[in-house]
């Protein structure tokens, strides 16, 4: 399994612009899977709109956001066939066990508790893209 031929699109959903930037900056120009293009959204509704317009490979999702929170976005996406298999990683400060369990119940693919180590984030995403 080597690099992928096309550009990987990652959608970062977080109401904090700073957090969006931090996550974006965690990635190098070229990672193990090749190049990455980042899209961002500041709340759940915006996220869904972006997903309608673009074909996203990975979704990085915060929990606490205005309008539509992360958990609701997750549930909504898993309801449709189109997004049932989409890798969705929640990156959030909600660290309590029952939060994680709730997210797992709703079908999250993986869960990272802020602060997120760059290495862990890259490894997880690599796992999803390259299927390791």
């Amino acid at each position: 399994m080597g690099a992928v031929n096309r550009i990987i699109k990652i959608l970062i959903v977080d109401d904090s612009r700073i957090m969006q930037n931090i996550l974006k900056n965690s990635f190098d120009e070229k990672e193990a899977w090749g190049k990455t293009e980042f899209l961002t959204a500041s709340d759940g509704e915006e996220a869904l709109k972006v997903m309608d317009e673009h074909l996203i490979d990975i979704l990085l999702l915060d929990w606490n956001m205005p309008k539509l929170d992360g958990l609701s976005v997750l549930k909504k996406l898993r309801q449709s066939d189109k997004y049932r298999q989409l890798p969705i990683i929640m990156i959030t400060s909600e660290a309590a066990k029952y939060n994680v369990i709730e997210a797992l119940k709703s079908g999250v693919s993986d869960y990272i508790i802020k602060p997120a180590s760059r290495k862990i984030l890259i490894d997880k995403i690599k796992g999803f893209i390259l299927g390791t």
Binding site: K97, Y98, V100, I101, L104, S109, D110, Y111
Partner: peptide
């Protein structure tokens, strides 16, 4: 489909 490592970490 659940990730077992994660599951072990959130044992209430």
């Amino acid at each position: 489909k659940i990730n077992n490592t994660l599951l072990a970490q959130v044992n209430p």
